[in-house]
């Protein structure tokens, strides 16, 4: 079943009225729900998904693997909370598997990103090792395939 959240996640430009029609409920209810989600930080924000490729300010994106010594009592949270403060860090995740923390970094140049890792992340006491992977091409961003064919391949009318 579609919900207010599932619809908004796909298209943040939908109005409460439109969502109400789509779900067969009323506008007031939808508005209240959205407000509640915003207050509870379930909805963190509304942004535009940009495919920067070929645009003037195209940023460099990298995924950094960190191996980290967990802290007594705080686990990995303390390190993660420190890393998340930096402007250049767009996402921080705790991972299962071969490494502990995944950091998505954005910068103007490869050098800038590499230096950030060398100067800010690697020296941290708890960080045992880092591995930097630059993202070369984005095929799909947040559920949207970047070079999807735009034209409807179907006939104009079929019965």
């Amino acid at each position: 079943m579609s919900t207010v959240l599932s619809l908004l996640e796909k298209d943040a430009t939908l109005s409460a009225k439109q969502i109400a029609v789509m779900l067969g409920t009323n506008e007031e209810d939808v508005k209240n729900q959205i407000k509640k989600y915003e207050e509870e930080k379930v909805i963190l924000g509304y942004r535009t998904i940009v495919n920067w490729e070929g645009e003037e300010d195209e940023p460099v994106t990298a995924m950094i693997e960190l191996k980290v010594t967990p802290q007594l009592g705080a686990g990995f949270d303390k390190v993660a909370q420190e890393i998340q403060q930096y402007e250049a860090v767009s996402s921080v995740y705790l991972m299962s598997g071969g490494f502990d923390i995944c950091v998505i970094l954005e910068g103007k140049t490869m050098k800038e990103v590499a230096l950030f890792v060398a100067e800010k992340l690697a020296p941290m006491e708890e960080v045992l090792s880092t591995a930097t992977h630059f993202i070369l091409k984005k095929y799909k961003i947040d559920g949207i395939i970047t070079d999807n064919q735009k034209e409807d391949p179907r006939e104009v009318i079929t019965l």
């Binding site: 409807d152 179907r154 006939e155 104009v156 009318i157 079929t158 019965l159």
Partner: peptide
Amino acid sequence: FFDIVAEMSDAISLGVGEPD
């Protein structure tokens, strides 16, 4: 009607009988 439709390539359609 179909002949007219066929000539209009820039129309928005709600005319098809198959999934998008």
